[in-house]
């Protein structure tokens, strides 16, 4: 064994070339504009701060999604996961949701998580769709492997698209049998589920250049309260 640098090279996974995700803007039910864009490693610490308060929120499986997403983002930042990408949704520059995934190989992608911080506006639906759009239309993959950890996710992905079972493949998230989004499924569902406009107007994009966090109390209120409280 050689130097620390040599050891790091052994620990760090090789990377595939990935095209950038071109940002887009979507109008939400509230009339607000949400910019969807890719984030790099330098912005991960900001996202970790947003996710941290949700680690102990049991409601709708936020705790398990937050814990796993936290680990995945950290692994991305520290080069301990292969070919991961992260997209965010920003409303007026404020974080509304995060999605991530990775490439299994050139043809197959794997969806990791969808975390909605601003609820009740189908932010998660838009961001998940952006993730699928990235795999199929921009990277040019054939299949995306997907699982759901919550009933909400199951309804949004497995039923709404609808996805096909691919139980012979074990997903990385706990080895749960996978479902799959194929190119055909994606393009069949696109008119109903994938939207957004490009290019993003310069002023909107500039407003989304820096991620602003809503604050721990606001995050918890939005997650627990906006949809009718949790008392």
């Amino acid at each position: 064994m050689g130097s620390v640098t040599d050891l790091e090279a052994l620990l760090r996974p090789p990377a595939m070339e990935m095209p950038p995700y071109p940002p887009k803007v979507v109008t939400l039910a509230s009339g607000e504009e949400m910019v969807v864009r890719q984030v790099g490693r330098e912005e991960i610490p900001t996202l970790l701060k947003a996710i941290y308060p949700l680690l102990l929120v049991e409601r709708d499986y936020y705790d398990i999604v937050a814990a796993r997403l936290y680990a995945e983002l950290l692994a991305y930042k520290r080069y301990r996961v292969r070919d991961e990408y992260v997209l965010v949704g920003l409303i007026g520059g404020v974080l509304a949701g995060v999605v991530n995934g990775r490439l299994v190989d050139a043809k197959v992608g794997m969806s990791y998580h969808t975390m909605t911080i601003r609820r009740g506006l189908r932010v998660g639906s838009h961001l998940f769709a952006a993730k699928m759009e990235y795999h199929i239309e921009h990277i040019g993959q054939e299949d995306v492997l997907i699982v759901a950890e919550s009933p909400i996710g199951f309804r949004r992905w497995m039923i709404e698209y609808p996805l096909e079972k691919k139980y012979e493949v074990q997903h990385e998230l706990g080895g749960v049998p996978s479902w799959v989004l194929t190119r055909k499924t994606y393009f069949d569902a696109k008119p109903r589920l994938v939207s957004g406009r490009r290019p993003v107007p310069a002023a909107l994009l500039a407003g989304a250049a820096t991620i602003r966090l809503p604050g721990d109390d606001v995050v918890k209120r939005q997650v627990l309260d906006e949809k009718g409280g949790g008392r």
Binding site: V26, T27, L28, R197
Partner: peptide, 16 residues
């Protein structure tokens, strides 16, 4: 949650 005509009916994203 306030909603708007654009957000739920007239914008291209309203279908989602």
């Amino acid at each position: 949650q306030p909603i708007t005509m654009e957000g739920i009916l007239t914008s291209p994203e309203a279908v989602v």
